[in-house]
Design a protein around this nucleic acid. Sequence first.
DNA 1: CGTTCGTCCATTAATGGACGAACGGTGCCTTAAT
Length: 491
Amino acid sequence: MKLEKILDEYFGFPSFRLGQKEIIQSILSHQHTLAMLPTGTGKSLCYQFPAYFFEGSIIIVSPLLSLMQDQVEQMKFQGEKRVIALNSFLTFQERQQVLAKLSHYRFIFLSPEIFNNQSVLSALKKIKIGLFVVDEAHCISQWGYDFRPEYLRLGEFRRALNNPLTLALTATATEKVRKDILHYLELDKVKEWIYTVDRPNIALSIEKMTSQKEKLSKLLHYVQRLEKPGIIYFSSKKIAEEITNYLMENGVSNVATYHADIEQEERILIQQQFLYGELDIICATSAFGMGINKENIRFILHYHLPSQLESYVQEIGRAGRDGKPSIAILLYVEGDEIVHKLWIENELPSNEQIDGYFQYENQLKNKEIIDYLQLSETQQRFLIYIKKRLTNESNLIKSTVAKQIKDDRVKTKYGNLQSMLRWIHSEDCLRKGILSYFDEEMEQIISPCCQQCGFDVTTFFCEQKETRKNDSERSWKDQLKKLFKVEGCQK
DNA sequence: CGTTCGTCCATTAATGGACGAACGGTGCCTTAAT
């Protein structure tokens, strides 16, 4: 049967999107595959489709519980009942039941951390695995070295499962990150399908200002005028909250804050409200976004810069999934990057902490070492990872290697931040800058492209559309607006 | 690095200033350390 026919009959799509068919064919011919597709272009089909050709289960490694839950719900809604998220949301009894009949499930979503659980791992060993999928595979490189070390152990877990056929999916990976992905998944002989990171319908703009105050008024200016809905990104939870209040005080309604300290229930509520159009603007940290499948986001504003261009591309990529013109504006004041430098410096243990850790390891209890050296959770996880990786080596070697890895990591992260800053300060086309960071060249001329290529931000304003209307219509509309305090474009 | 928070001590007992410490995004997993 032709693939298109199956696509139509089973999934209800008339045709494949860019890259999907090639990736699916590559999987169907049993080649390990690394696929890079632009944000929001239907990566999940790439593993859902082959599932119906394979015996055995499809394992999908996913970075977030909420993402797994969403995908499971969505697939159940589409009629696939043999799907489960194997994670800490399950009670002990539920987990036992699921593990007992694991081969029953066609799709098994799980986190990298769950492989640490011996009963889960041994249950997985007993079933036939048709495909091992790593979703958002750039997390291996982005988080594996410090924040979530289990991402670096996915190769080890793959080996434990007898090296199943593997598909790594991402939207943003430089050459270096792609190498990391293959290395840590222990893959060679890989078919790579790399498509552009570019999203032509998203116009790009950077505005440099000299004070935070100026930035604040610029933000309000844009928020009041740009077509909604939109997301505003911050590198501080506190400032995200403050600006939510500031916007509301200035007549912008339907705004909410989203960050890691917001209760789980509240976070789900905000996501839902945003999805269904009850909220227009989310003031968020980097916690917000993964798995947000909202078609009509019109703008992404950055009140603070992210720490690397990969993150920036991920974040702005949430705009314009419907293909309509959208805009990404980065507001920059010198010094905004300082907080990233601090995090780079402090998230991994210092040389003194590393030496101390391996020196006292045999003498003190773990908890005493942590207290004495004041190790953060990330720092502990890093050190435990090194310890496990070098089990048979002396403490001196462990200590030396740990310092080496830490130095490399700090250097890489500084480099990424520098690239971000170079891009901000460059006077070249912004799109070209992003593409060249991902070793791509501009192949087409896009209009509107970016503020370097010359475009008018006001074309993205609601007002612009309304001035086309005649005066009398406008005035009653304005009055109505005032009366009901309606913000945003009226369609 | 730059802001905020808590403590201490001052003096027309209820503020206020000085000073140092703490903090700053992201998320799994809680039966996993010889």
